[in-house]
């Protein structure tokens, strides 16, 4: 079965006054139906921009300048704006990081749900759209959805609002949901619930999920594959167990080392020294070279290309962790 989404060598650059900012520079991955892919990276690694590029919602002065985004075989980067608009919310939906900010504060929940249905199918009447919205709210675990439909966003807690956004994203039964740190702004108990809910819904509806996060622990539990991004590039991607159990890229290794674990109780956490280089001024060689314990002379001269390993892993490194 062909994958739902194939991102091939995606490049999204921002043309700022200070110069060209290469937020996403050659990212490739694919997602199959019902699959969950974790896109992991620290702030500024380009993971959110990758998500927005897929939806065609990159803000000025940013632009997708290269590569392909094949959604069911159709290249989204060459799609007319009107067709892209039809795609958004119906075939590809998105959930944002901060539930406090994603719902319009001055519109009722029902208004914001009904419009999402009717904009894609004007033949759906208001009553039917309301019915579907109510069912969607019930599905994500909101009690007495009938009453809650009439409420405004500020009358919900953060976790509840995120459930509402998830319900909105699921409304039109999309093939792909891009979830941009959907649990980061929630407290831990709610996080668990939301993650569980999403996983269940996606399994049920065969929806593919691109889960963007900075928290390896979150995706480790739910995803099929993980892509680790650093400075606009995927440095390592592979099946969940292989990547977590046996990280090959020094950066992945560092990330995993900085997660607290039961086995190393009482020991200080490892940290990756230094900071991400400026995206305006990336080195010729590997972007991680200045923070890497394994760096060789050649890492400074040229950036490693993607190499596919035996265990379906794709790696960008000259001197992998062994």
């Amino acid at each position: 079965m062909p994958p739902i989404l194939e991102v091939k060598n995606l490049q999204t650059h921002f043309f700022t006054k200070a110069g060209v900012l290469k937020a996403v520079d050659g990212v490739s991955f694919e997602i199959g139906a019902g699959e969950i892919i974790g896109l992991v990276g620290e702030s500024g690694s380009g993971k959110s921009i990758t998500g927005f590029s897929i939806l065609g919602l990159v803000d000025e002065p940013g632009r997708v300048v290269g590569g392909q985004i094949l959604f069911k075989g159709q290249d989204l980067t060459t799609l007319a704006p009107a067709d892209m608009q039809k795609m958004r919310g119906s075939r590809i939906a998105m959930i944002f990081q901060d539930p406090m900010m994603t719902l319009n504060p001055v519109l009722r929940i029902e208004t914001q749900m009904i419009e999402a249905i009717q904009t894609h199918d004007s033949s759906v009447g208001k009553d039917e759209a309301r019915q579907r919205s109510r069912d969607a709210l019930g599905l994500v675990g909101i009690s007495s959805p009938e009453e809650r439909m009439r409420a405004y966003p500020h009358q919900f807690s953060g976790g509840m609002r995120q459930r509402v956004s998830i319900a909105i994203a699921m409304l039109n039964r999309p093939d792909l949901i891009i979830a941009d740190e959907p649990t980061t702004a929630l407290d831990v108990t709610i996080q668990g619930q939301v993650i569980h809910e999403m996983q269940k819904l996606c399994k049920k509806t065969k929806t593919a999920l691109l889960w963007i996060t900075h928290d390896l622990a979150v995706v480790a539990g739910i995803s099929n594959r993980i892509c680790v991004m650093y400075a606009g590039r995927v440095v390592e991607q592979g099946p969940n167990e292989a990547l977590i159990g046996n990280p090959m890229h020094p950066y992945t290794n560092g990330l995993l080392g900085s997660v607290p674990s039961q086995n190393r109780r009482g020991e200080p956490l490892q940290q990756i020294e230094g900071i991400v280089p400026s995206l305006l001024n990336l080195p010729v060689g590997c972007a991680f070279e200045n923070r890497c314990g394994n760096a060789l002379a050649e890492c400074r001269q040229s950036a490693p290309d993607e190499v596919t390993m035996d265990d379906q892993r794709v790696l960008r490194c000259f001197n992998r962790v062994k």
Partner: peptide, 17 residues
């Protein structure tokens, strides 16, 4: 610049709406 505008666009709403 608010997220809810971006979210509205992500829902596929027309620019007019």
């Amino acid at each position: 610049l608010q997220d809810y505008i971006k979210f509205a666009r992500a829902k596929g709403l027309s620019e007019k709406r």
